[in-house]
Simulated scan of single mutants.
Amino acid sequence: MGLQENSYFLSAGESLLCDQNERFLFTEAELESLDVEVRFDLPEISNKSYRIAVLKDKGKCLLLGALDLRSALSQTANEDEFSVLSAAAQVVTWHASFKFCPRCATKLIMDEADLAKVCPSCGHHQYPRLSPCIIVLVRKDDKCLLAHSSKFKSGRYSTLAGFIEAGESAEHAVEREVMEEVGVKVKNIEYVCSQSWPFPHSFMLGFMAEYSEGEITPDGEEILSADWFSVDDLPTIPPKFTISRQLIDEFIKNV
């Protein structure tokens, strides 16, 4: 990816844009011929600054279309690169999705100080949206519980995940989601790591948990199949840039 400070991500609509070489960071000079609607700063990553320029129209430039975000994330070299690209994608989605004030329907404008939009009529501030989620690897002796979701490609298995509901702790969400999706109770829930996940604006809190009781019973809607797998017979699992893979790798390391 080759992060260069003060580079620009470009977007039109809800997509980040790239050129014919799948390049998606551009210089100030390359923006001169483009019709830019608005520019704003991303949160700093490792004390480095990056910006987004939102185009009114893709128009007459080197850009050919929308960036394949999953592919680009899979090619990031480190956590900084992943974080910058994830932040850019989530901010673009937010900018495209929140145009009007949810209180009075006035068109929002960019805040001059913060990464936010403000209503010029009632003063309401709208910040980039984050949806907190849990993701958990359940262990049972030397095996782990992996599931095939209705959203996955054929043969792909991963950890269990779900959104945290209003008023709910992350730990309770782990217990609830595991029970709802596969009918199993868990104990000894331990936090491991987190990851911002831009599909479209999830914030994943990763946990390990131990099996307590129950028989695996997939819900048949979100989860089509699930089973216990040992290190020697793992199915097709998610790529290394995902938090689910980090949890699986942590399990493998400690078996």
Rank of each mutant, 00 (worst) to 15 (best):
C144V: 03
V84N: 05
C144W: 08
N47W: 14
E44K: 15
E28A: 13
N21C: 04
I109Y: 02
E79N: 12
L25V: 13
P239T: 04
A96F: 13
Q4A: 11
E79M: 12
D227N: 15
M179K: 13
A29Q: 12
V136K: 05
F241T: 10
P238H: 11
S212V: 00
P239L: 00
A88C: 12
G155V: 04
D233Y: 05
Y8P: 04
N6T: 05
K240S: 14
V138L: 06
F98D: 01
S212P: 02
E250K: 03
K153P: 10
E190T: 13
R103M: 07
D141V: 14
S194A: 14
F9E: 10
C133A: 15
K253V: 06
A113P: 00
H148N: 05
L69G: 04
G162Y: 07
E190G: 09
F229V: 02
I223G: 08
I237A: 05
K253R: 14
K140F: 00
V92R: 11
Y211R: 07
E37P: 10
E190A: 13
Q75D: 12
N21A: 02
V178R: 03
P198W: 00
I237Y: 01
E165I: 06
A116N: 10
Y8G: 02
L160V: 04
S97P: 04
C61P: 00
S46N: 14
V186N: 06
D233H: 03
C18V: 06
L145W: 05
E250G: 14
I134L: 02
P218T: 08
Y8N: 03
L247T: 11
E210C: 03
A89Y: 01
A77F: 12
P239K: 01
N78C: 14
K48N: 15
P238S: 02
P132A: 03
L17C: 04
E165W: 03
L247P: 09
I216A: 02
G206H: 08
S74E: 00
R139G: 08
D142Y: 06
P218V: 06
D232A: 15
A12N: 13
D35Y: 03
V178S: 03
H95F: 09
D35R: 07
D80S: 05
Q90E: 15
E190H: 08
T159P: 06
I52D: 01
L205K: 00
E215P: 08
D19A: 05
S49V: 13
A173N: 07
Y211H: 06
M179C: 13
E221H: 12
E81H: 08
L67C: 05
E37T: 09
P120E: 07
F163Q: 15
E79R: 09
E22G: 08
I109S: 06
L10F: 07
Y211S: 07
G214F: 12
L64R: 05
P200N: 14
E221S: 13
N254F: 08
F40Y: 06
I109R: 11
